[in-house]
């Protein structure tokens, strides 16, 4: 379960919106360029601080303005896959996937198990020793997803994960995302421009413009309204 109800004064407008995503559910955040989609993800990850409001996952309060709670980025336990995947190009695929576990000082046996498990699930075991800077766009997305999921996050956030992918890879990555979220029963926030991606992967959709929700619906309801 993930709840977001926060306000943030931005340069051109004030972002002020509420969202709620259940476990095992993917909410698609849609909207034009500069609508505030990525800002929602950054506020949730702790890379930006809201001016007011509450942000919480099932296990912890990430931000509570009145109680002056502002959990540091490192302790939020959120899997955040950036638009460019941001795999660490100087490390091998294995070291990328294991990075979060090493940072959290997970013991070496469990680290090896979890790293191998997530490389297997996302079909990147054969790339374990390859330097991540040499991977294709689709492979980088899979590494980023495995790296985020290996840390057992309370929430998965994906920023335009399909942008740099060809159609074949888009379908594959969509399936992997759905599988990860359903199996791990965690809430997922996915930002995309593309209604096709939204329909293929989302359970609900939230359309925002200038920092405000202009449509909040189940996926079926959204597409029924659109047609």
């Amino acid at each position: 379960m993930f709840k977001f109800a926060a306000r943030k004064e931005l340069r051109d407008f004030t972002l002020d919106l509420s969202l709620e995503v259940a476990d095992g559910e993917i909410m698609v955040l849609m909207g034009g360029n500069g609508a505030g989609k990525t800002t929602v993800l950054r506020l949730t990850a702790g890379l930006l601080t809201p001016d007011a409001g509450v942000i919480e996952t099932k296990k912890r309060i990430l931000y509570h303005h009145q109680s002056k709670i502002n959990c540091p980025v490192q302790n939020r336990n959120i899997g955040y896959v950036f638009q460019n995947a941001a795999v660490f190009p100087h490390m091998s695929v294995y070291d990328n996937v294991a990075f979060g576990l090493r940072a959290r000082r997970v013991d070496s046996l469990e680290l090896a198990d979890r790293t191998d498990e997530w490389m297997d699930r996302l079909a990147i075991s054969n790339l374990a020793t390859v330097r991540a800077g040499h991977l294709s766009g689709g492979q980088k997305q899979r590494v980023a997803l495995a790296r985020a999921m290996a840390t057992k996050p309370d929430l998965l956030m994906l920023d335009e994960p399909f942008t740099a992918l060809d159609q074949k890879n888009q379908i594959a990555v969509r399936e992997w995302i759905s599988l990860c979220v359903r199996e791990q029963k965690i809430p997922c926030l996915l930002v995309t421009h593309n209604p096709t991606d939204a329909e293929a992967v989302g359970d609900s959709v939230c359309v925002i413009d200038r920092g405000c929700v202009i449509e909040d619906n189940s996926m079926r309801g959204y597409f029924d309204n659109a047609t």
Partner: peptide, 11 residues
């Protein structure tokens, strides 16, 4: 994004 990703991973 490299630095931010590392931090979200608990680094």
């Amino acid at each position: 994004s490299y630095e931010e990703t590392a931090k979200t991973l608990g680094s």
